[in-house]
Design a protein around this nucleic acid. Structure first.
Lengths: 164, 164
DNA sequence: CTTGGAATGTCAACAAGGCTGACGTATTCT
DNA sequence: AGAATACGTCAGCCTTGTTGACATTCCAAG
């Protein structure tokens, strides 16, 4: 009965927990990125390109929810440094398909290892039951706009399988 | 048995969930702040001053984990705009004790209402069991350094009760 | 086949909010 | 008396977001 009506204090605690947890969440990647002269924006690009290799610039724009000028600055650096490869589309030659080079994959692995370790530790400490709850709450809290674009991308990617 | 070993894909999903959820989490406050010419940094200051009225600048520095120059810029604006009040300490007159003015409390209430609504909706959608899991995982994911400072502040605040 | 719009890149300018380094001023502690 | 603390401030730099404008290439529809 007291469960279905969270108090203001409960909500405050949740809000502060999100703040402190997000700090912890980004801490380790931030350190690694700084060593390479990159920031979080580069991490996000690298992450989603790794996750959906061959995806286009406009897909990335929709997922990340930033302007093309902002993304382009980041992408240009990654391409110049040889971490990301940009190839013209075959079906539609206006599109650029993005993928990680060998070097890019190495950095991605390093970042992913650090961040996953933190998440894995938290999962282990809280237990599998808690993890399901964690994911359920995050799911309900997500930005609907970005999520919509992301699920669309996932579906498109599924359809594309075998033709690339 | 499969539960105690999250796959790479599980971790990836968790990582992306944190990204999209944090976006959702900050979305509504960001809109309100923009209308007032403020940003997230102002929100964080307002939040913690509201939470611990009379707290000092160095406490805030430790909790937020930023430099005094960065915090000062934000604080100066809030004080000049009449949202935050800074008063010299009585015990130690080098300290500045921060509190929200009437106007500051109004903005805090507006921000808090928006953010709490989003969190409350997510809690309601996921259920009370999930909320406990959510908090357990966040707890384990938190930045230890900031958290240490924060719990110290909470304890100090308890001891101070009645003398301010 | 022309024409509108989509996908991309780029230049310029600006703002928020981090950072470092250096310096000044009360005030307290030793 | 002198060191250390709490705070404020100036100056400059970086990343990452923004808007606006313009060019190119290419697809698709009239």
């Amino acid at each position: 009965m007291p469960d279905d009506a969270p108090t203001n204090d409960d909500l405050m605690k949740g809000i502060e927990a999100m703040f402190f947890a997000y700090r912890g969440f980004t801490q380790d990647p931030d350190r690694i990125l700084a060593q390479h002269g990159y920031g979080r924006a580069h991490h996000r690009a690298i992450h989603f390109i790794h996750r959906w290799p061959g995806t286009t610039v406009s897909n990335l724009l929709a997922i990340l929810g930033v302007t093309k000028q902002s993304l382009n600055r980041v992408l240009r650096a990654l391409i110049e440094d040889g971490l990301v490869e940009s190839t013209k589309g075959t079906a539609d030659r206006r599109e650029r398909h993005l993928s990680l080079t060998r070097t890019g994959q190495e950095l991605e692995a390093e970042l992913s290892a650090a961040q996953s370790a933190r998440v894995m530790d938290a999962y282990a400490a809280a237990g599998p039951e808690a993890v399901r709850g964690f994911e359920a709450v995050l799911e309900a809290m997500m930005d609907r706009e970005l999520l919509r674009h992301y699920t669309r991308l996932r579906d498109d990617h599924g359809k594309d399988r075998g033709e690339m």
